[in-house]
Design a protein around this nucleic acid. Sequence first.
DNA 1: AGCACGCCGACT
DNA 2: GTCGGCGTGCTC
Length: 661
Amino acid sequence: MATPAVVLVLPCAPLAKPYSYTWPFARPAIAGQYVQIPLGNRIVLGVVWDTVGAPPAKGALKDVLRVFDELPPLPATLRTFLTWMADYTISPLGAVLKLSLSVPTAFDDPPKRGKTLSFPWPEGRSSPTTLSPTQQDAATVLTSSLGQFSPLVLDGVTGAGKTEVYSEAIAACLAQGQQAVVLLPEIALSAGMLERFRQRFGEGVTLWHSGLTPATRRETWKAIARGDVPLVIGARSALFLPYQSLGLVVVDEEHDSSYKQEDGVHYHARDMAVVRAREADCPVILVSATPALETITNIKHGRYTAVHLPDRHGSAVLPAVTLVDMRREVLPSGEWLSPTARQAITATLARDQQVLLFLNRRGYAPLTLCRSCGHRFECPNCSAWLVQHKQKKRLQCHHCGYHAPPPAQCPACKGEDTLTPCGPGVERIAEEAALAFPSAQLAVLSSDTMESPQDAAQLIEQVQQKQLSILVGTQVMAKGHHFPALTLVVVLDADVGLSGGDIRAAERTWQLLHQVAGRSGRGEWKGQVLLQTYIPDHPVMQTLAHHDRNGFLKTQLAERQATGFPPFGRLAALIIAAPDARRAEQTTQALARAMPLAKGLEVLGPAPAPLAYLKGQHRWRFLLKARKDFPIQRAIRDWLGAIKPESGVKIQVDIDPYSFL
DNA sequence: AGCACGCCGACT
DNA sequence: GTCGGCGTGCTC
């Protein structure tokens, strides 16, 4: 009588490693099989990580309870990817597995009734639009890379037809019977993008994001795992789906910082996408008009292959970018539209064309204070000001969700009617524009007015139907949309974002302003962009005005190289957070005493984190800056192993931090 | 992440 | 004398 086999199962719980279980079934275990196992005193989902396990040092083995055989096993290429990622991000392997098994009800039985989703594979693969010769050349490079790992960068200005070009590669991938995934930043606003893919590839195109209903989510997940879904358009979480036969990964707007996941497992979806593709042995296409410095450097070093699309497609040409020197403009306090901008708006409206006033600040005013005693309204849970929202009639924290109605009297001096808004938000700009251009139809487009995809779609529709002439928008307006009649973009405060010690501030500002500038003049008329700035001589402003991307990249790369920051060095952050200020500080001090000393590594801090109090947590931060070849993960693991955090203190590790908050 | 175990404050 | 608060630690 043979003894029952012992297998290693990774539970879907934040555990560092798989556990051993006995395999009580006659048929042998297969790596990747989904199983049900007892863990503690509950029953959880797990994945067979290895068909050969070993008894633990103490305690008895438990039996695997059930095998879910109706789906093919979690592919080996995904398992190796998850293992790599746990190691890279210093996260428990089981927590990373959870990203893939994001559908807790997938294996519930009896299987719920409801519509069965069907995802037809598209037939034929001809392009609905005719590609230009340069587009065709680019498409050929992408298409001929299918079948093995190759990191490609599709680099082309806004309007050059990048989507059409990479769609050719998707079509070829699907024609070979393999699945493709397209990652987009902020999927909720990408209904238009989905429509374009549906037109070409039919009903086999599926959205994947956090807003799906549980039933749709479950059925979609299962269909993907079976290999039945040809094309997934999704947010960064779509990278972890258990594609049965992944043949292509596309990361659109690869420079976008919303690809950086900042809670739970910290990761950058663009970088993870490259590794995912490497493990799946398929191409990954990074798409952008303004590739990240990291990406540019990877091209320079031959790690990535660039595919250029130099022209704007059709008649559209690049907009003229003019710097408005705000030091020379005369405007009364409480107003932000310069006389130069007002003139341009008047002229544009007279031509029956549309205007975008861009300000990356939600609400009415970023700060409210008492005019008699100077009291500032601050969030009780964060070291941040409360933002005044007139539409919603409240003061709101943009970090934790706290909000309160504006009080009738100042809580400090009890003065009546003394609250004064300070500084502009989009609502306030809309107010100013409505006064200045009373006959214009005007709307605010921000995450507050576009909360649901339906709201967003409705507003976008109104813009396209030309029912609106002045749009006042935050960065949600910078992305993707195609408004042929929009010919003037005014950036109210082009300098915002350049202050603060963020090493990527200039890069992000350049990318954002370039992207928002690209909203202008996408139709038959030439576009115009006005950048209101107090620092017109700044390299960011100068290179934007001259469409000099290479000049900008040169200044930035030189600066990063001189300082040893990424992409020329590695960065990691340790955030120490606790509700109790004293305990947070004590743990920080313990870490400081155990600080690693090594050649090629520099530890900066500890210092209070940029938001020293956030969501009720007192926060400290260390920054680790290392040479490119330095094993930063090992140093951090050793460091954390050397101390014991005070009770209630959490230490978060962020490899390759982006936001410095 | 759950969930139980454990050690200190107000109750019938 | 118990009920229950949630800090701490484990899960093959």
